[in-house]
Every structure is written in C-alpha cells, then in structure tokens.
Simulated assay, not measured.
Amino acid sequence: MLWNFTKMHGAGNDFVVLDGVRQTIAMTPERARALADRHFGIGADQILLVEPATHPDADFRYRIFNADGGEVEHCGNGARCFARFVHEQGLSDRNPLRAQIMTGIIVLDESDDEQVTVDMGSTRFDPEALPFDASGLAWRTQQQDTLWALPYESASIQGSADISIVAISNPHAVMVVDNVDTAAVAQVGPLVESHARFPKRVNAGFMQVLDPHNIRLRVYERGAGETLACGTGACAAVAAGVRRGLLASPVRVQTRGGVLTIAFDGRQLRMTGPAESVFNGAIDIDKLVFSLALTR
C-alpha cells in the first residue's frame, strides 16, 4: 500500500506528515515506528496524521505518533507544521485553523512571513494533571511555583533534581541548569522521562536562563529521545520560569534547531516559530514494515 507523505521540520524537530483526508491511512504502532526509523524508514521524531475532524468546532483532526509508535496528546512544533501542510497541500485556505487534538481544540495562525503562531490553550500545574505521584517527596515554593525534589538513579549516575511540573495537554518536568551544553541530558533525561512517579512518562526539559527574556533549552522527549526542538517543552519551560520569577513574557527560546517565541499570561500560552517542508514522497508501508521485521 503506497502512502504519500511530506517530510517537514519545525526548528529541527522533524516529522513525516500524512494526508488522511484524501488517502486512507490506517496507522498502527508498527507502521509509525517503521516510518520514523532513521536507518530503514524515512526518519522522524514524530509522525503527524491529518484527518477529517470529528468535532463540530474543528477544521481537521490532528494526531501525533512518537518514534516509538505511541500516540501522544500534543506537539507544538508539529502543530505549526500541520498548519503549513494544510495550506500547502490545498486542504484548506482557512486562517486561522482550528485543529482537534486528543485533549481539545487548538488554534493556529500562519503569517505572511511564514511563521506560525499556535494558541496552545490553558496550562495546569497540579500533579494530577500530568499525572505525577508526588506523595512523600520533599518540595519547596519559589514565588508562584512548586519545586519537587525528584531523586533519580541508574548504574552510572544518581542524584536529585528540583523540577517544575507543567501539563500542556502532554506532561513536562522542567529543570534549571547552569549550562545546557554541559548538562547531563543524555544521562538524566531518560531517568526522568521514565521515572516511576510519572505513570504516563514525561518530557524532561533542561533550561538555562540567560536573562528574563531569553533562555536556552534542551528537551529529552517522551518516546523520542532528545530532539532538536520541542514546542510544548519550550512552552513548559517559559511557564515554569515565569512562575519561578526568573522570566518575563515574551521569552525567546533558543533550541538546538532554532528559535521559538513564547508568550505567557499566567494561564494561556502562545508559541510562534517556523515550519518548513523538506520534500514529498511515497512509500510502500507494508513492504517497509515487513523489511524492518526481518532485521529484528
């Protein structure tokens, strides 16, 4: 079965985008993993699927599958690519667009300078929203935020991190570090991401504050590993930083793949950044899945 696709990226966070409006796409975890495979497939951090809306207030349904095949709630960089894809492919000329995601509806506006702004919706900071098991953990307040002392341990490293927890449809744990270049993202990231206190796992953010309007950020994403950029991770970092009294909106977020601008009013988040198409193609998905099965 041939699937037409577009390879896209938002600040280096890369995607395989599929039109499920004009072609039939029966996505499975195995197919998502095959598409995302960087050696045998197309290669991507996430797979994005555009489908007809099932909600009366939405223009389209927008679904996200991580490289490990799991479907997730939200992806900010992917949302910007979704908007660009819908317009480039002629699926709609509406602007702004209303997209149905797993947890509600988001609004996306593409500007003349090819930047896309996403109204990310409301944000929550209570443990139940992620969910996060905070029972028995030490904690302290920093202005409006609560910092939880999360212990982590592996055969090669152990320690504890003060984390801010942020739910933006999907869950985030944000840590402040002195320098993102030397932060132990590869070691600590997976320990936080799969920590037992996060039953649905979590995106682990490492934030370096440069000044109240500028930060650097690296994110170890749930089901994808470290990516060059994470839109919801940037939003979570800014929200945590504002609540801690370290940042003031708007904030310029420097990721390894590019720059995002985040505005936060204490509840609502708006993210602006690039979305780029790289190439179009077609792939025999069944042949790809079968070929990958032979290598395992």
Rank of each mutant, 00 (worst) to 15 (best):
P190C: 14
P190I: 11
L191Q: 15
E193I: 05
E193M: 09
E193L: 05
S194I: 02
S194K: 06
S194F: 10
S194T: 15
H195A: 13
H195M: 15
H195F: 00
H195E: 15
H195Y: 15
A196F: 01
A196E: 09
A196G: 14
A196N: 12
A196I: 07
A196D: 13
A196S: 13
R197D: 12
R197C: 14
F198N: 02
K200V: 07
K200W: 02
K200Q: 11
K200G: 12
R201M: 11
R201F: 05
V202L: 13
V202H: 05
N203I: 05
N203H: 04
A204V: 04
G205Y: 06
G205V: 07
F206Q: 05
M207Q: 12
Q208K: 00
Q208P: 07
Q208R: 06
Q208T: 11
V209W: 06
L210N: 09
L210F: 06
D211E: 08
D211H: 13
P212D: 12
H213Q: 12
H213M: 06
H213N: 15
N214Q: 14
N214C: 14
N214I: 06
I215E: 10
I215A: 04
R216W: 07
L217P: 15
R218V: 06
V219W: 08
V219Y: 12
V219R: 06
V219Q: 14
E221A: 14
E221G: 09
E221D: 14
E221M: 10
R222A: 01
G223Y: 02
G225A: 07
G225K: 08
G225I: 08
G225D: 03
G225Y: 00
E226H: 10
T227L: 11
L228H: 13
L228F: 14
L228K: 15
L228V: 11
A229C: 10
A229R: 01
A229H: 01
A229F: 03
C230M: 14
G231N: 04
G231I: 07
G231Y: 02
G231P: 04
G231T: 04
T232H: 01
T232C: 03
T232V: 04
G233W: 07
G233I: 01
G233D: 08
A234P: 10
A234Q: 05
A234S: 15
A234T: 08
A234M: 04
A236T: 02
A236Y: 00
A236D: 03
A237D: 09
V238P: 12
V238G: 13
V238C: 12
V238Q: 15
A239C: 15
G241I: 00
G241A: 03
V242R: 02
V242Y: 00
V242W: 00
R243Q: 08
R243C: 05
R244M: 13
R244I: 03
G245F: 07
G245K: 00
G245Y: 13
L246D: 09
L246K: 13
L246P: 08
L247V: 09
L247F: 04
L247I: 04
L247Y: 00
A248W: 03
S249C: 13
P250K: 09
P250Q: 05
P250F: 02
V251A: 10
V251P: 12
V251I: 03
V253T: 09
V253Q: 05
V253N: 11
